[in-house]
Design a protein around this nucleic acid. Sequence first.
RNA 1: GCCCCCAUCGUCUAGAGGCCUAGGACACCGGCCUUUCAAGCCGGCAACAGCGAUUCGAAUUCGCUUGGGGGUACCA
Length: 486
Amino acid sequence: MNKSVRVRYAPSPTGYPHVGNIRTALFNWLFARHHGGSFIVRIEDTDVTRKVKGAVKGILDGLRWLGLDWDEGPEVGGKYGPYFQSQRLEIYSELAERLISQGDAYYCYCSPQRLKEMRAEQVKRKQPPGYDRLCRDLTQEERAQKETEGITPVIRFKAPLGGQTRFNDLIRGEVVFDNNTIDDFILLKSDGYPTYHLASVIDDHLMEISHVLRAEEWLSSTPRHLLLYRALGFEPPQFAHLPMLLGSDRSKLSKRHGAVSITEYREQGYLPEAMVNFLALLGWSLDDRTEILSREELIQSFSLERISRTAAIFNRDKLNWMNGVYIRNLTAVQFFEAVQPYLMMNIPAGEALISSENYVRDILPLIQERARTLAEVAELAQFFFIDQLDYESSLLVGKDMSHQSAIQALEAAQQRLSQLEAFDAGSLEGVLRPLAVELGLKTGQLFGTLRVAVTGRTAAPPLFQTMAVLGKERCLRRIEAALARL
RNA sequence: GCCCCCAUCGUCUAGAGGCCUAGGACACCGGCCUUUCAAGCCGGCAACAGCGAUUCGAAUUCGCUUGGGGGUACCA
């Protein structure tokens, strides 16, 4: 199997890349890398009406972001190009003509209107909808007549009327279809573009694709493809139909399930390595316990045998957990770099404190172990960057404390802290712990009040470290502001 | 409707006849640690869709039922 493995990711540029499509790309990529084969990207832009402008760029950026490099395809070329189907139209029409001359395909002049009505009628009569093969056996004269009427025909495949088509799916085992359930499907549309069926079969053959790993939604078109391979005299590749990715309600993943585009995950601050790890585990597993696998380990251990046959639901909670694991595993430098685009995200323009790089470097360790996404970092660190803290004043008065004792605590703290020379976590603790005792407060009460005064929240990184990073002046100013509220 | 695929905790999954009173992870609930929150550690909750058959023995094999998904386009 080695050496000859050539797989492809063949998205159609009709929108932004969906996590389901990306998962398919990932499996193909892992398979190629595991076997030392080639990973090819081919753009299936054969539907002119659904084409979306920046889609190709979005797809390629998504792959790049996840580190899924391609050996042949857009931007990198390759000897089997072009890799855009819209640039290969002559190839498809030539082969479609060949099928006609062989008697395996025919021109069909039926109008979309007639097809639509016919189907409506079939559904009404509870018949399986399908083309009635009206044009399958047109005589030369009848065809000439249609041509003079100026109708541009489509080319349809002449599906066998009997027998069966079977194949061995690498994931699902043997699958059998009766040929009489296969329609005379269209190969070439009237606008001269091929349908997916024709184009993918031709290109997979011409590009010497060895394995087609695609989502399960393609399973029922596979017999048509096999019939085409046979008619064209091509040897078919091996097929493996991957389990689908479903939304939380078990229906096909779509926009109403929240984020579905890979770009959204990038924007929300998921790390590509976490995304790769998580996606790899959707439909594939190494064993009964391994959850965290590096890219190298994935490549090493990936195999078709361990792909499941069951559709999977995209579980956001688990992704969040995993992303947190990856964030915590970052070095300080890596985290600093990763967080740059997100840091000032929800801080109103003009309100941000002028902060040095060193200040940011001091803050980050306090945030790193608490964030599950990079976007969350901005939220968790916000109070470090703005002085106008917005909080409910009553939070300053902790559990079992009186208004008066809160004031007293803040004043005492203010007084002690202003006398403090070294404003590091150790010194702060050395002063504040005894102070609690002195005031007759539990440490939790004093620290709680101070925490709210200094951060504006009841949940924050450890108090002394936080105060040390904020610095003496800023802390005193915030305590002053808190007192003014009481 | 018809065709195809699938079926283990809420979710992702391990399990390829006895190792299963079904394992791991996320989530959830307790506890420990602790100045709060996280993290970490310990513990708990929670599943073999149903019915038949094969077998000494079935989550694992077979059949049926049910349920879910996909396809059924001049979309991919």
